[in-house]
Amino acid sequence: MRAPHNAQVPALPSPDDTNDTDEALMLRYAGGELGAFDTLYSRHELAVWRFVFRSVKVQAVADDLLQDVWFAVARNAGSYEVKAKFRTWLFTLAHNRLVDHLRTAKHHASLDASDDDERSLVNTLAADSGFGPVRQLQSREQAAALIAAVEQLPFEQRQAFLLQAEGDLGVQEIAQATGVSFETAKSRLRYARASLRQQLQEFAP
């Protein structure tokens, strides 16, 4: 399994997989079709890696956790049922593995994001038309300020925010992934956004 940030050319799905839903592909993989796993991996590896990396802040650890998440997908394939979107199920696995890791971690290194990492998060957030001043972020200085602001969020708020920004999950899906109520997930997301807006006021138009 490769680390997504080092990938130069993404894996191309076979023509038969191009229009298949994630859920259909996962069921096919559970039935023994290994190529379906490759397609799922190529679709979601980068988003999962970014989600994990922005929480652990150490590239090597993020790489290891990414592998753990996809090994969990493989281990649980036999019991997989379409009860929610595959993406929700996948990020639930990622969140749970991340929580397990952080519970046992002794310390964490500071975030050292590359230009690509910064632009990735900025571009993701810029696509969210409801996030106001973040859409105006363009310079490296502004991107660095955004990364720093996300890092300073309390863990629960940061998880909710990144699950939406990186995982493209809705509030109900965030609640499911983190094991909390809809109102709790909504509240965490609201507080995260309010905090980021406050920290990024100087960049508002």
Rank of each mutant, 00 (worst) to 15 (best):
A194W: 05
Q201C: 06
T88W: 02
E23Y: 08
V73Q: 01
K85P: 04
L65Q: 03
G170D: 10
Q201V: 15
L163E: 08
Y29H: 12
L163R: 08
R119Q: 07
D116F: 10
E118G: 10
F203N: 10
S79E: 15
E183F: 09
S129D: 11
K106G: 13
S187E: 12
L146K: 06
W49N: 03
Y80K: 04
E156L: 12
F155H: 14
D117G: 01
F71T: 13
T178P: 02
W49T: 00
L169N: 06
A175V: 09
R43L: 03
V52W: 00
A30C: 03
A62R: 04
D100K: 11
A149Y: 04
V122Y: 03
F182D: 11
Q136T: 13
L12S: 12
R188I: 02
Y80S: 07
S181R: 09
V9C: 03
D20C: 07
L90N: 09
R43G: 00
Q164E: 14
L189C: 09
R140K: 11
R140F: 03
V61D: 11
E156C: 00
Q67T: 07
A72R: 12
T184G: 02
D38P: 00
Q136S: 14
A145N: 06
Q59T: 05
E81S: 15
Q152V: 01
Q67M: 05
R119L: 10
G31C: 08
D128I: 09
S195T: 14
R43Q: 00
V48G: 01
G167D: 01
K85H: 09
V69P: 04
A149F: 03
A160F: 07
D117P: 00
V99T: 14
S139I: 02
G132W: 12
Y41I: 05
G130R: 13
N96S: 14
Q136N: 14
G170L: 10
V61C: 04
S79N: 12
G31P: 04
A105Y: 06
E81K: 15
A127V: 01
F51P: 02
Q136L: 08
A74K: 09
S181V: 08
G78I: 10
R188K: 11
H101R: 10
S79M: 13
L102A: 07
L146R: 08
A30I: 03
E23R: 11
D22Q: 08
A145Q: 08
D115G: 06
V58I: 01
R54S: 05
F53L: 06
V180C: 14
A127S: 14
P10A: 15
F37D: 05
V61G: 06
L121Q: 08
G78P: 05
S110N: 12
L46N: 07
R2K: 10
R158T: 04
T184I: 08
Q159P: 00
T184P: 00
F91I: 11
R43P: 00
D115L: 03
A143N: 01
E118V: 14
E151W: 01
F51G: 05
T184F: 02
S110M: 07
R54I: 01
D20V: 06
E173W: 10
A192C: 11
L40F: 09
S14D: 11
G32Q: 07
